[in-house]
Amino acid sequence: MRSSNRKALLGLTLFLILFPVVAMNVTAIGHYLDIMIFVGIYCLINMGLSLLMGYAGQISLGHAAFFGLGAYTSGILCTKFSMSPWLAMVAGVGITGLVAYIVGVPSLKLKGHYLAMATLGFGVIVQIFFNEEVSLTGGPSGFSDIPGLSILGFSLDNDLCYYILVWFLVLLTLIFSLNVIHSRIGRALRSLHDSEVAADAMGVETSRYKIIIFVLSGVYASIAGSLYTHYVGFLSPSSFDFFLSIKLVMMVVVGGMHNIWGALLGTWLLTFLGYEWLHVFRDFDILVYGAILLGVVMFLPDGLVALVPRMSRVWKRG
């Protein structure tokens, strides 16, 4: 791993250790721990999206569907079939991975706007499915009483334990993703960006890697979905609607889609905005979201993370 990544990883880990210590001792931000759990869950999805958009150069406007598939598989298997949550999570990964593969193979042959529309359409179809298959999903009102998670009989039912679990998985996924980026697979993907014809001539299997990354990002989203289910204990289709897909893309773009750290930054910022800092705007959050996204795309195409080197340069200069 590169030293810059190692430093950033160390910094993130330190922050994650200190965060609950501070949050739990300052009443005003005591509930930030809860928000950070959601940040972690969305970070899981968005690391996959970042690989897909920033490295494989593809877009998906349907990732809420993979998130939902993971969540519903976990929820249904645990409540209706009393399966162990961990096994259900694995089943979710299997099902979502399979769906991602089946959808990905034909979709990734499409380019640009067509891919965007195809994934958007797929996402809406899955949401309709959640709404209509009442006997399985509980329909529009969803279902509740989904059990929490435990490890070896030790319940993870409090925020701190869940925070540790979620962010531990985020760190693992982050390291996994960074490893992929700095490997032959990551190099193959990046080479496509610069010259598809030369990549082809070097024998890089363009379409194969696009599909692998698409499935991988679906798997990340599925794990996130399972974690979400067991945390909130309640599922309804509105949590996985197409606007969530758009919001996920937005988080990645605002943070900076060509950098996986950007995805983390964007997710953190927009989730806190949505759960906490935008409460002043109440229902008008959509307006603010639109304005932020438009502003970033127009004036900061590499996202907020692009400001980091600039700031550190200014800082070093004194």
């Binding site: 996994f176 992929v180 990551g186 190099r187 080479s191 610069d194 010259s195 070097m202 890089v204």
Partner: peptide, 30 residues
């Protein structure tokens, strides 16, 4: 048609692509 935003060494490493086989799992977990 060099890969302009990759380093010189990385360019040549892409050339080794077909002579290597590590998949997503083994690269992810190193």
């Amino acid at each position: 048609e060099v890969f302009g935003r990759m380093t010189v060494l990385e360019n040549v490493m892409v050339g080794r692509h077909i002579q290597s086989r590590a998949g997503i799992i083994s690269t992810g977990f190193r």
